[in-house]
Nucleic acid binder design. Structure first.
Length: 408
DNA sequence: TCTGGGGTCCTAGGACCC
DNA sequence: TCTGGGGTCCTAGGACCC
């Protein structure tokens, strides 16, 4: 029987911001942007939550509900840095650690009793060490299964530890709302409510085959989850089986919608570069490229194209993205968002296509040189987009207020 | 309410092949 | 002219998570 910890950092983004600005402590804080910006709340302090503010809520709504809140921009590099510190601490407690996101992790603690003692003692030590070394607070759920531990850590929040002893899983879950089950969101909750299923216990009483007939493959997994089993594509994998990324994407929402082709193309160039860069950093080549296009009325389309030969080059990504855009954009229509998405990663066979090899090689060398320049001078130092007028001005100003070096 | 950005997984339909 | 079944690949969209 396994012992699985789910460690979840409390109000992670807000807590990190407080480390950089202690005056935020105890106040209503909203991380995600300015109160009049287009965007949503990334994280809210417990003080702000009292006013009904929660993550994924539009910033403007949050500003209305909690006018005295302090709004701060998110700092992804800070969070990644602290996430790495958290990871480091966790590694000391088990060799099997899996970061499930930037602020939560699963630990397989099976067989660590000799080193760390029984589960509650180990959890206590982990909590103390985490606080001492990162100055951050976490909550910990403990059980024999990932799913139950995750739900338990949520119930333990904030600053708590909850151990569901073996055999008590179903009884622990039964009185909770179905929404507490990871994977049950708004839509599934509504569908379950229509069937008078409100609590996990209601779900557990149903036959797995009935649920499968009604909800497909997902229903069968749901039946298992209601009983505390790790069912479903990801939940039943071993902890620490590190999985390579399956897709890489970047998107941008304009502060004001635009129908200006030059601006739109420039954005696509920029996004293509960002995707290309990440592909090269990860040593990946993508065969499928996808454009995402959202109009003013929020209607959204995606259009994909699979290449004969996988790529990691900015120019090839941009060419595809641009072609897809020109083919599908209702000319002149105002655009809210553009995105570029790469998937179907494959090994490349460099022997293929000898004719193109010279040209391809030169691009690869040029791209590698550009990456080195970006490392040195920042992302806007070298750019396909720099040659196109009007793009990303709003973004460039906030990120790089100083004069930017031109193509060299 | 006026809706980000980066991901994963699932479904469904059509093309194409045997 | 009406008609099998299975498998794979591709595309589009949607639910969900943090």
């Amino acid at each position: 029987m396994k012992t699985i910890f789910h460690v979840d950092m409390d109000a992670f983004f807000v807590s990190v911001e407080e480390l950089f600005d202690p005056s935020l402590k105890g106040k209503a804080v909203v991380v995600g942007g300015r109160p009049d910006e287009r965007g949503v709340v990334s994280a809210a302090s417990y003080e702000a939550r009292k006013f009904g503010v929660h993550s994924a809520m539009p910033l403007r709504t949050a500003a209305r509900m909690c006018p005295h809140a302090i709004f701060v921009d998110g700092h992804p590099t800070r969070y990644r840095d602290y996430s790495a510190r958290v990871h480091e601490v966790l590694n000391r407690f088990s060799p099997l650690v899996e970061m499930a996101s930037i602020d939560e992790a699963y630990l397989d603690m099976t067989g660590t009793e000799r080193l760390h003692g029984p589960p509650l003692a180990a959890a206590h030590a982990l909590h103390q060490t985490m606080k001492a070394e990162t100055r951050l607070i976490c909550s910990i759920g403990i059980s024999t299964a990932r799913l139950v531990s995750k739900v338990a850590s949520d119930q333990a929040k904030p600053n708590g530890v909850l151990w569901i002893v073996p055999g008590a899983e179903a009884a622990f879950l039964a009185p909770l709302d179905v929404r507490k089950i990871p994977g049950v969101g708004k839509v599934t909750e509504q569908n379950l409510h229509k069937l008078s299923i409100r609590k996990v216990g209601d779900l557990a009483r149903l036959d797995g085959r009935d649920l499968e007939a009604r909800f497909g493959k997902w229903g069968l997994a749901l039946a298992g989850k209601a009983r505390g089993l790790d069912a479903g594509a990801w939940f039943d994998t071993e902890i620490g089986a590190n999985s390579a990324p399956k897709s890489i994407s970047h998107e941008h929402t304009y502060n004001e919608d635009t129908g200006d082709l030059a601006v739109l193309e420039s954005t696509l160039a920029r996004l293509s570069e960002m995707v290309g860069r990440r592909l090269r950093e990860n040593g990946l080549h993508a065969r499928t490229l996808q454009l995402k296009l959202r109009y003013s009325d929020f209607s959204t389309i995606t259009r994909a194209q699979t290449l004969a030969r996988p790529t990691q080059l900015d120019t090839e990504i941009f060419d595809q993205a641009r072609a897809l855009f020109l083919k599908n954009w209702k000319r002149g229509a105002r655009v809210r968002l553009l995105g570029v998405h790469a998937s179907s990663f494959e090994e490349v066979d460099e022997q293929l296509n000898l004719l193109d090899e010279g040209k391809h090689e030169r691009w690869q060398q040029a791209t590698a040189a550009a990456d080195r320049l970006r490392d040195k001078y920042g992302d806007s130092a070298v750019s396909l987009a720099a040659g196109l007028k009007g793009g990303f001005r709003e973004r460039t100003h906030e990120a790089m207020p100083q004069q930017r070096p031109r193509r060299s």
